[in-house]
Design a protein around this nucleic acid. Structure first.
Lengths: 221, 221
DNA sequence: ACAAGTCTGTTGGATTTCCAACAAAAATGA
DNA sequence: TCATTTTTGTTGGAAATCCAACAGACTTGT
């Protein structure tokens, strides 16, 4: 368990907690390690989640299978990332998606009930952890709302404009860099890459913006 | 302030808190009332939010204006609903959208810092409130992720299938009722109503499902 | 029962996206 | 440096969406 401390130190859950305290927190939270072979299902749709998970090694895919068996990749979890924080409250209902190991993986599990309930030994960093979970969810919430506002746009053009507009705001400059290449941006906005590239070209021709690689500039009017 | 107790009692924030306790909480949380005329801006993009708000009367619109001035309605807040809970943590960054009164409105404001910090007088229901906020955000998080998974689908058909599939799961039956009429469902999935109606017709013709008004049945294979 | 209004399904044409394929440009690595 | 791979832009045809318009079904209120 000890070998995971450097990784945990960098996670959102243990942010601000020292090495020694992490170790004591691990036993306080009843932490355990589980390993999954490639393709193995970690959580299945319909299960009730009573643990918080941090991925240590490998890659997990959050995917859904609909009524007719069509598979769909929703998200990918990488080492250091958390899963299950939205299910931390009691009665949050069953999982609606599957979590499957995309490659051989190992993950740390923490008892959710022990997180929300302050432990009897009143370990000093417990409240810090609660706050960290709170911050994480809150943060994710804002990002989701924002992303939803891009995706709600009907056309590729509008999706691009709303996303780029927000990035400009966020970076307080009409010249800014985005953290995606074309394919990633297309995936993020859920549109076809070639059509998006095409639309970017049009926007540039119309004088609305300019770009070189992942650096963009927005022009007024 | 007292007149709002019946309304507050039904909100997520004060769920499980008795009438008397709500009153004492109001002063503990430094509550205040603010009124907005139709069209007035409650919060502006770029501001830092340091208060949690519950709408008492009227309707608020959460809307964005992009770099070129295009307006876009993102959400509507109705009486009893909360706004700002995702900004409750310190350093959550500036608001990216505007909040505007769609009609004459009145709202209750609570000091965010007083919510997260346990009050000196240690009022008994404070921890309850913190949990309620936690639950609300966590809940919203799950709903947002779910909705995002519908919207990420490329075609109207896939959006419909993924949404209906989930509803069937959620209601544990291939026969179920949805809380939308056609226009609302189209808005929810962010597609054109007539095109959606058309697609529903095709799905029925293909034998995948059947519907009457807002009651749906899914068929295997 | 009637009128007015709302909701739903359907259609046709303009527009847009998707998809596959390919070429140019850039990055990578031996 | 040169060859290979990855990324980006461009294109053309097929398919889907959007939009406007309309008609029938259903609701509502008088």
């Amino acid at each position: 368990m000890k070998k995971y401390v450097p990784l945990l130190k960098k996670t959102k859950l243990f942010s601000g907690v020292g090495d020694d305290d992490i170790l004591s927190m691990l036993s306080c939270l009843n932490a355990s390690v589980r390993e999954y072979g490639k393709g193995q299902v970690a959580f299945r749709q319909g299960e009730t989640l009573r643990e918080l998970m941090i991925l240590a090694e490998g890659r997990l895919h959050i995917q859904r299978e609909d009524y007719w068996g069509n598979l769909n990749l929703l998200n990918e979890i990488r080492p250091g990332e958390m899963f299950g924080e939205a299910y931390i409250v009691p009665n949050s209902g069953p999982l609606l998606n599957d979590v499957v190991a995309a490659e051989d993986s190992a993950a740390l599990f923490f008892d959710m009930d022990r997180i929300l309930t302050v432990c009897p030994s009143a370990c000093p960093f417990h409240t810090r952890i609660v706050k960290n979970v709170f911050y994480t969810i809150s943060d994710k919430n804002r990002r989701l709302v924002q992303k939803l506002s891009y995706m709600a746009q009907r056309s590729t053009r509008e999706k691009l404009l709303s996303y780029l507009s927000d990035e400009a705001k966020r970076q307080s400059s009409s010249f800014f860099t985005i953290p995606f290449n074309r394919q990633q941006l297309a995936d993020f906005l859920s549109v076809d890459r070639s059509a998006m590239s095409n639309e970017l070209g049009k926007l540039r021709d119309e004088g609305l913006l300019d770009f070189h690689k992942n650096q963009f500039t927005l022009y007024e009017l």
